[in-house]
Design a protein around this nucleic acid. Structure first.
Lengths: 346, 346
DNA sequence: GATCGCCTGTAAACCGTTTTAGTAAATCGG
DNA sequence: CCGATTTACTAAAACGGTTTACAGGCGATC
């Protein structure tokens, strides 16, 4: 019933535990004959080293943790995380690492961190003042941040959120839109602070809009799911103050407003222009294909994993320059149509 | 530099290691005064129990492993896994478990299994004769299979693949299609065997087609990515023997076919009908929205996790009845148009 | 022929927890 | 006031590996 231990193999083969350990980890330290005998006995008994024991003894577990600030049951509704993991996965494969997903355990990310037996952490979208970061510091475990403010202690991988947002807003403004709405990302964990990403994107949108001398946009918080985007559309002003363009901070939310708008009888992009953020693959197949800001998600994952692995080897690493973003114009945006709306602008 | 151990806390607080352990795990066994003192000292020192040591001692790690037969860098290209994890995640949250992703380590799933410190495994799409299953048996770790043949040893969660496939093929046949193509799922790991899922779906397609007395379909292997689907379309016969209907075993492959067909000047569904499998959320937003077979992916994950957790508690569990599948007719399928093709049928 | 070094193999310490078995003091019933 | 519980705490033994330090045998070297 219980699993086979190294001691049982040792006694069955008539050698010491050390010999068995050597057989697997330093075969060259054993004679040909004993090596084969030990390996044979181990095989017959179905011996497998206990991973926790091994991790304790070797001070390394062979896994890296991904700190997720949201619940597992919702976070994968956005393809973002899946794509990021593709990037992380590439490096993990190279280095024989597995990936542990660490979401909050009954609301507490700190508790989850303690429980996780990992050699390093990659954290997603944490505010710089999140208490989880303090815990990571205490433990002194290598950590790389994604979509956060970097600090001397922890390198951070970021993209040019503000620039991308500015380009998105600029695009709508060029098309003549004057009444805009912004779909803001919800705060990640604490109710009080938005994620650094949301802050930067919002700043980009706002900067472009105020520079153009256009009235302040209507903004509404929307989760990263399609359903949340649809709800956000429903809560937008109707009639005279109806926005003609919406800037969403995620593609999923953008798709939600597109479908909700279509369901309410509006045409996209004729009656309403929508631009997303991220450029997840699905954005290219939607109806209409989505205009959005591309960020290199997979590359972001690769880079974070690369830095973390460096850091786990003891080397000190710096935050790299933000990766660049780019506006991808597809078919969910068009020149503003309704003339009487346009004359309200300047 | 190094992390704080229980012994350091004990000596700093002037008590035994046992007392410190009690302070955290059985506070009622300590006097009020010492409890507070120990907790205070631990807090000051920033003590956190070593997860591997804890796992070794308690014989439980608080994580469950997801055995993935493909590389991490590609498997998330299909939303299937993300959705499944949503279901698993719900149960994990309830039971304070984290999720370890276990892909093959340099080609070997067996090696990855050994390295993983988990309390149970959920395995995806393994053939009944995969050697990884043998390893799981040796270790004697609770395991639940998804999309595999169940065995007395391991319960399996499945859906009615054959029925769904039959419905999909029947739908195309009813629409008058007589020249069909099938996009087969690639084998998961070994080059020789297909996954049980692929086998069952293929059987369903074939049964419906031969019962209708229609010529055998052209079949081509296509990965689960959009790009693979597009390549598959390109390899289909052109001209006179061009299929008018395609049965894909995944939505991503179906989307690939649709986009490739559109790029080559064909109209979907007018010139080509396409039906997918899975009904991932994105299928509803594509252009055109995809006709597909819905399987309850999230529920599949929930059920598998529920069974595994039962099994980890020592209860014995049975394979549940296959979950039902349902054809969702959207707009990627239409009656066959080209008359001169139809007269070749009977 | 003694010395050196290499080749095999082992005993014991160590990794950092939890848990079992037990002890001394305090409390209790009678 | 005495034996039986209860309370508060501890020493030591797991848990299952790896690693360090060392020992015996044997051929080569001088």
């Amino acid at each position: 019933m219980s699993r086979v231990t190294i001691a049982e193999v040792a006694s069955a083969a008539g050698v010491s535990k050390t010999a068995v350990s050597f057989a697997f980890n330093s075969p060259e330290r054993l004679g040909q004959a004993t090596l084969e005998r030990v390996l044979g006995v181990a095989q017959d008994l179905g011996y497998t080293p206990h991973p926790a024991a091994r991790a304790l003894s070797m001070r390394r577990s062979g896994t890296i943790g991904v700190l997720i600030p949201q619940r597992l049951s919702t976070v994968f509704a956005n393809p973002f995380l899946g794509e990021l993991i593709q990037g992380l996965g590439e490096l993990c494969e190279e280095h024989d690492l597995t990936l542990l997903l660490v979401p909050p355990l009954n609301g507490s990310l700190e508790g989850a961190i303690r429980q996780a037996s990992v050699d390093g952490f990659i954290s997603l979208g944490l505010s710089p003042d999140d208490s989880a970061l303090a815990v990571l510091d205490r433990i002194g475990i290598p950590t790389v941040l994604i979509d956060s403010e970097g600090s001397p202690a922890h390198p951070a991988v970021n993209v040019d959120d503000a620039g991308g947002a500015r380009a998105a807003a600029g695009h709508l403004l060029e098309l003549g839109h004057r009444q805009l709405a912004i779909l803001v990302l919800p705060p990640a964990r604490s109710q009080v602070h938005s994620t650094p990403t949301a802050v930067r994107r919002l700043a980009g949108y706002r900067a472009a809009i105020t520079e153009a001398g256009v009235p302040a946009p209507h903004s509404v918080i929307a989760g990263i799911s399609v359903a949340a985007g649809a709800r956000a559309f429903d809560s937008l002003p109707k009639g005279k103050h109806r926005p003609t363009g919406v800037l969403a901070m995620s593609d999923m939310a953008a798709i939600g407003v597109v479908t909700a708008a279509q369901a309410s009888g509006l045409l996209v992009p004729d009656d309403l222009s929508v631009v997303g953020f991220d450029d997840v693959p699905a954005s290219a197949w939607t109806n209409p294909p989505l205009t959005t800001v591309r960020q290199p998600i997979v590359e972001k994952g690769r880079m974070a994993a690369r830095l973390l692995i460096q850091s786990m080897k003891g080397k000190s690493v710096e935050s790299p320059a933000p990766l660049s973003t780019r506006l991808i114009v597809r078919s969910s945006t068009a020149p503003v149509r309704n003339l009487d709306l346009r004359i309200n602008g300047r």
